[in-house]
Design a binder for these strands. Structure first.
Length: 328
DNA sequence: GATCCGTGGTG
DNA sequence: TCACCAAGGAT
């Protein structure tokens, strides 16, 4: 018995769908990817939203689509341009895979984005969640999604624990097959805005009458991994409208091929021009930035300031260049 | 199946 | 301040 036992009747599921969708129609946030059914635009949004908050995606989404308005445009782009547009969003492998998938669509699918969840799975970067999200939103295929939001909502609503292996079946049984895209987004919207990870705001919940826990159920969470603290000194060297940067090795595990400020050889102890904190994966960095005279080491390159926006900079590098007004 | 991949907001 | 973590996927 896969379905949560509080949704055993078709009538109960129907009421739930009606309430959830009515709430979503009124309270759903106006987001740019909700104003289109263009599968390309839906696809880009789903990749950007992987493990990334809506607020962090909005700016990048608009700029990315302006620069790469179609799957053909993306397929023809240089990878460095794609990474530059992704700079600051993190998880850069998403951008490389999106780019590779666009090329695959252009060359092996005659430029047509596959229109079923099953076929979408053949594209790099598209797993079970993303395939179902695109298929349901862009093509109205009745396939449910399970993301962190949906998992939490289902766990709280169910009167019995839901095994990991039954999550997808549970979501599928609950799905409104007539409006799969809206239903999936409504479930995620509920989790993102009301059924919050910490303390849920049940008084605002449109489906609290169908909920077994009313927010009392604690959602188990894994103990966080130990974070490392490190510090680094970077140098900011400019001459003749150019800045000294280095490119990370293409063989690097972390952010391969992306550009950053060179390290500042330790020694002279003086006040840095800029201090900042930056967390990256599992390390919390304390960064000191020193302006200094030109002294080029191997592997460092002069880059015209006018080209910075076109380079795949690491997020930290973008942050520093913006704080120092060298980048818009 | 555990681990890795980035970043910025949040309480 | 600091731990947590957000519309996952690949390996």
């Amino acid at each position: 018995m896969a379905a949560a036992s509080n949704f055993k009747s078709a009538r109960a599921r129907s009421r739930f769908r009606q309430k959830l969708l009515a709430w979503y129609g009124v309270n759903g946030r106006a987001l740019p990817w909700r104003e289109t059914r263009d599968p390309y635009r839906i696809w880009v949004s789903e990749i950007m939203l992987q493990q990334t908050r809506v607020a962090a995606v909005l700016d990048h989404y608009r700029r990315f689509l302006k620069q790469f308005p179609s799957v053909q445009a993306l397929a023809q782009a240089q990878e460095s341009a794609v990474l530059a547009a992704w700079s600051g969003l993190g998880y850069y492998r998403r951008a490389r895979m999106l780019h590779a998938a666009a090329k695959k669509v252009a060359h092996e699918y005659a430029g047509q984005i596959p229109d079923s969840a099953e076929a979408l799975r053949n594209l790099p970067g598209i797993g079970r969640y993303t395939a179902n999200a695109i298929a349901s939103i862009a093509f109205a295929e009745p396939v449910a999604v399970v993301d962190g939001n949906v998992e939490r909502v289902l766990a709280r609503m169910s009167e019995v624990p839901i095994a990991q292996s039954e999550l997808w079946t549970t979501a599928q049984n609950l799905l409104d097959p007539a409006r799969p895209g809206d239903f999936n987004q409504a479930m995620m919207e509920l989790g993102a805005t009301i059924c919050l990870p910490g303390v849920p705001e049940c008084h605002r919940c449109p489906v609290k009458s169908a909920c077994c826990s009313r927010g009392q159920k604690l959602v188990a969470r894994t103990p966080g991994a130990q974070r490392l603290r490190k510090s680094a000194s970077l140098k900011l060297v400019m001459r003749n409208g150019k800045i000294l940067l280095r490119q990370r090795p293409t063989s690097a595990q972390l952010m391969p091929g992306m550009w950053e400020l060179p390290e500042y050889a330790r020694g002279i102890r003086r006040q840095p021009q800029l201090r900042l904190k930056h967390s990256i994966t599992s390390t919390d960095w304390s960064i000191n930035v020193y302006t200094c005279r030109a002294s080029v080491s191997s592997g460092e390159t002069w880059v015209p300031l006018s080209q910075l926006a076109r380079l795949p900079l690491t997020g930290l590098t973008r942050k520093i260049l913006r704080r120092t007004n060298l980048l818009a």
